[in-house]
Design a protein around this nucleic acid. Structure first.
Length: 508
RNA sequence: GGCCCGUUGGUCAAUCGGUUAAGACGCCUCCCUUUCACGGAGGAAUGAGGGGUUCGAUUCCCCUACGGGCUACCA
């Protein structure tokens, strides 16, 4: 086989948001292409006009870019490579479909949707609940194989609506060599005469992938496992069109499954179980429905793709935290799993936490600044950087930075007084009241001085310092969380510390 | 129903005929810390079932069971 530059494509259908399975397919395509110095191009499957959603194509590109994946551009009209939009290539597909009819590999079918419906009803039985338009039935239906030539010519001349269907051969084995699964064999009797060209002149996926992959010079085609059953149609098409030698290598990726029940992960599962299934927020312009994204929930793109790549693939080393470059380096298509993987949101969050810990404060800064400004706080950069190091290991999602940081800049709006009330007494109350006075005259305001003062005063009052630390914390941050209290006090300053103490003292 | 794909702990999974069957997430215990985390040390938990092949099967083959996908003028 002649060596060709590796070229893979991602073929999303712009009928809605991009869910996990889609992004992972894109990612695997991309990793493979880059590993082999090839290109990654886009092909947009937008021939189903009824389901097309405006804006979805751009959304898909935005998601990929967020993940750090940038599709390669290429000449379009010359037939080199993408991005291709099926809707723009209508005439092209018809040409090939007609060619197949001429060669006897396809035929015109004039059956109306109603007639097909009737046929299915008629032939339905217990042993065959869904009759197919296939070699057994096609001679009983209305097509250019069953009708005489004059009738067919007449129907065509009258512009009778028709489709072009592939003529599946009789009882023939079609073999497919899958990079992940090995050889898979199908018998043509089991697959129906798929529609290649619809009545509106648009191709179906089956014709479009083959034609586009050929013209885009695709060398490797990776797609979801749900395509496996129709792959014999594609293999046959490559052969019938005379392009057998150019057929890409196939790999059918395992599905991403629901965490709980069964079946593949769907948009609904996210709503139901409280996690995102799209990369970014997606608002359907038709319905106005909003689907939450990983980005908006506070995931770092690095963590997102890391988590996705490790769902159904691993390099065998036991290591799990990889950046895009390392992923590219270590990626091997043969190490992709055969079985579907259940999505685990807890593990996804763990990846994000690892990435937050791994990232330096500078990298985190823009995220945190954006978060703070959404709360109308815009402190100096170096101040934010200092606080980031104080709280970053307490954040699992980027959005966690807000509650972890806000009390450094604002008095807490909610004070969890319940947390201290049970063990609260007059002695403690007077401790804070008198300590306040001492704080006022503390010569130096740093965490060590504050802590020393706190402890010696506690000793003088006859209370264990430990019993006073939680109340102090709640006074400063509003709840039972955050970095060491004395560091917080040092950071927020004397006046703020004293103000918060007296405020909470009044509440108790 | 038919066809195809799959099946190692609750989840992600390593192993490519011989191991005390890794590791990670989650869970539990302890240490650190009188907050929440991070970190550290432990723990419970796995080869769907049945037949072969073999000196030896998680690993190879067959059957069964179970799970999934497809079965549209959707992709």
């Amino acid at each position: 086989m002649a060596t060709r530059n590796v070229r893979v494509r991602f073929a999303p259908s712009p009928t809605g948001g991009l869910h996990l399975g889609g992004v992972r397919t894109a990612l695997f395509n991309y990793l493979f292409a880059k590993k082999h110095g090839g290109s990654f191009v886009l092909r947009i499957e937008d021939t189903d006009q009824s389901r097309f959603v405006p804006g979805a194509e751009q959304y898909i590109i935005d998601c990929l870019n967020w993940c750090g994946i940038y599709p390669d551009e290429g000449p379009h009209a010359e037939g080199a490579y993408g991005p291709y939009r099926q809707s723009e290539r209508k005439a092209n597909y018809r040409k090939y479909a007609e060619q197949l009819v001429e060669k006897g590999f396809a035929y015109y079918a004039f059956d109306t949707p109603e007639e097909l419906e009737k046929m299915r009803e008629e032939f339905k039985s217990d042993t065959n609940p869904s009759p197919q338009y296939n070699s057994k039935l096609r001679m009983q239906l209305k097509n250019s194989l069953s009708l005489d030539k004059a009738t067919v010519d007449q129907l065509l001349a009258n512009n009778t609506p028709h489709v072009i269907r592939i003529k599946m051969p009789n009882n023939t084995e079609v073999k497919l060599n899958d990079l992940i699964r090995g050889e898979v064999t199908f018998n043509t009797d089991q697959v129906d005469d798929k529609v290649l060209l619809k009545a509106d002149g648009m191709p179906t996926y089956h014709l479009a992938v083959v034609v586009d992959d050929y013209e885009m010079q695709i060398t490797h085609a990776f797609r979801g496992e749900e395509w496996l059953p129709s792959s014999p149609v594609h293999v046959l098409l490559w052969e019938y069109l005379g392009w057998k030698e150019s057929m890409p290598a196939w790999a059918h990726l395992p599905l991403i499954l629901k965490p709980d029940g069964q079946g593949k992960l769907s948009k609904r599962d996210g709503d139901r179980l409280g996690f995102p299934v799209f990369a970014m927020d997606w608002k359907d312009p038709k319905t106005g429905e909003l689907t939450k994204g990983f980005k908006e929930m506070g995931f770092m793109p690095e963590a997102f793709i890391n988590m996705l790549a490790l769902l159904g693939w691993n390099d065998g080393s036991g290591e799990e935290v990889f950046d895009l470059a390392t992923l590219t380096n270590r990626f091997e298509i043969e190490r992709i799993h055969k079985g579907g993987a259940k999505f685990d949101f807890e593990k996804a969050k763990w990846f994000n936490q690892e990435w937050i810990k791994k990232s330096n404060n500078k990298k985190l800064l823009p995220y945190v600044v954006a978060l703070l400004s959404s709360a109308n706080v815009s402190p100096a950069e170096n101040e934010v950087l200092e606080i980031i190091s104080l709280v970053k290991e307490r954040c699992q999602l980027l959005n966690d930075f807000l509650p972890q940081m806000l009390y450094f800049f604002q008095d807490p709006a909610n004070i969890d007084t319940e947390a201290i009330r049970a063990k609260w007494d007059e002695k403690k109350s007077s401790f804070f009241a008198t300590w306040s006075v001492l704080l006022e005259v503390l010569p130096e305001w740093n965490s060590i001085e504050i802590e020393n003062s706190f402890k010696s005063h506690a000793a003088a009052a006859g209370i264990k310092p430990g019993e006073l630390q939680l109340p102090f914390r709640v006074m400063l941050v509003g709840g039972k969380f955050g970095p060491p209290v004395f560091e917080i006090a040092a950071k927020i300053g004397k006046a703020t510390t004293m103000r918060r103490i007296s405020h909470v003292l009044k509440m108790l």
